[in-house]
Design a protein around this nucleic acid. Sequence first.
DNA 1: AATCTATACATAATAAATTTATGTATTATA
DNA 2: TATAATACATAAATTTATTATGTATAGATT
Lengths: 112, 112
Amino acid sequence: MKNSELYKGSLITIILKLLNEHDKMYGYEITKRVKEITKGELQITEGALYPSLHKLQAQGFLDVEVVNIGKRQRKYYELTEEGTRETIKKLAELEHYIKTMRALVNPKFRMA
Amino acid sequence: MKNSELYKGSLITIILKLLNEHDKMYGYEITKRVKEITKGELQITEGALYPSLHKLQAQGFLDVEVVNIGKRQRKYYELTEEGTRETIKKLAELEHYIKTMRALVNPKFRMA
DNA sequence: AATCTATACATAATAAATTTATGTATTATA
DNA sequence: TATAATACATAAATTTATTATGTATAGATT
């Protein structure tokens, strides 16, 4: 928590990239992984995560596999081919966003 | 137009930084300047800009001076002292955001 | 002269993303 | 046996921005 508003709009990119790296992950795992990688800086809330996963699935970017761990269930998400293409697109957008913001914020930095 | 969702949450930072650099600007000027600096990449809409300026003013970060140009009016905005402190804070948040996103997106990059 | 574009402000309705709150249930730990 | 962690989920409220609309002046084009 205490995430700056800048993270708004970044969640989809984060989810896609993690799935691109790890092949298969379940929701709760994603929140833990993000917290760990960012040293606690970024906490993904469940209220944001689950709807996003459902949306990505509905868009055809993710496939789901439900696995039972004892009596509890996990939903493993995995990128589809289209999801991989979307990931690449989102990562390019992130790089572009950073470049644009640098141009705006650092006067010495000019857009190509 | 066609701004990626990543820009959501960045508008306040952009406005503050431009005012920090230029001392005094009016709304329409800000939209033009942003479009110019980003080579047309980022178009700030009036529906987003004006409410944001009003909010920053209400928060005590901006002072306004109304100037008549012929029969038309301009509202020049200027950072208050508190606004300058807020700008510094927002710029630090941006740097931190970029670092965090790099850590998430580039596995070779680790958080300090 | 008439029309279009740019300048300059503004707000209202809608949409989208996220936070906060709440709910259910299992499993591990103190 | 109580608490924390795991694991899913949704609903209400909030925030931010988009799209649409409105008013009006000034400059440029036909």
